[in-house]
Design a protein around this nucleic acid. Structure first.
Lengths: 126, 126
DNA sequence: ACTTATATATGTTTTTAACATATATAAGTT
DNA sequence: AACTTATATATGTTAAAAACATATATAAGT
């Protein structure tokens, strides 16, 4: 027996799920923001326990912009280094809406699964 | 603009989520089965839209067995090729229970997210 | 001059999912 | 007997994503 299960659950093996795309789209739908803001705001959506990975955020933003779901412009006002100000497009909004069905299906599956496994009795530990 | 978003949503980009491990554990908790049975039974849990990938199933079973969460024995009764009969262990049951919290957190995040995005209005198409 | 906070970006490695293929047994078909 | 199909397990290969690490730059505070 290898030891990857010995301590704790290893549920997810430390990985989060891939909801970063709709999460960013949603936050930009709420209001336009800088990429850096997303690092602070993403965890509140509940998909990222700790700090969101900057690498993931900026690469996702690039991907979204490459596909016309968001647009950006440099913002040199204010202090500190230049910021990129991201705004969702109509295509982006439309895309966000399309996520609803995927998310609903996933949620329903998780709901049903929770119902099923809640009847399992945990043996009392010695 | 690249074209990966042009048609449809690309939600998930064709990928399913990684609930195969607790799904298999649950099915084996219900009753011991052959790996081949899991191909038919897994889709009913709602995480896999179509046919589950045999490669994923057998590799996951190996992984679970390597870690003591399931045990197996060859079953040469019946017709056709020999089958491996899988049974969940106490450690496996315990592990399945530990998934509950992970699944609940994910479900709650999806729930909250659905609530948020449901207020977005879809523009009427021309 | 040094450190810290802000801000964006890229490089590398590991893991996972997706897809493809291989192997073998036995039953049914021509 | 040869061929096809269903059953059953397993491995190989590729592509994508996550995780982790590092690079670069501006400006404010000490």
């Amino acid at each position: 027996m290898s030891n990857s299960f010995k301590r704790g659950c290893n549920c997810y093996r430390g990985r989060r799920s891939r909801w970063i795309e709709p999460s960013i789209l949603y936050l930009l739908w709420e209001k336009s923001r800088h990429g850096y803001d997303l690092m602070n705001d993403l965890p509140e959506l509940g998909f990222f326990s700790e700090q969101a990975d900057p690498g993931a955020i900026y690469r996702t933003l690039r991907h979204l912009e490459d596909n016309g779901l968001v647009v950006s412009e440099w913002d040199t006002s204010g202090s500190g280094p230049a910021k990129r100000f991201y705004t969702i497009t109509e295509l982006g909004k439309d895309n966000l809406l399309r996520w609803q069905e995927t998310i609903r299906l996933q949620k329903n599956a998780l709901d049903a699964f929770l119902e099923k496994i809640k009847v399992i009795d945990r043996k009392p530990k010695i």
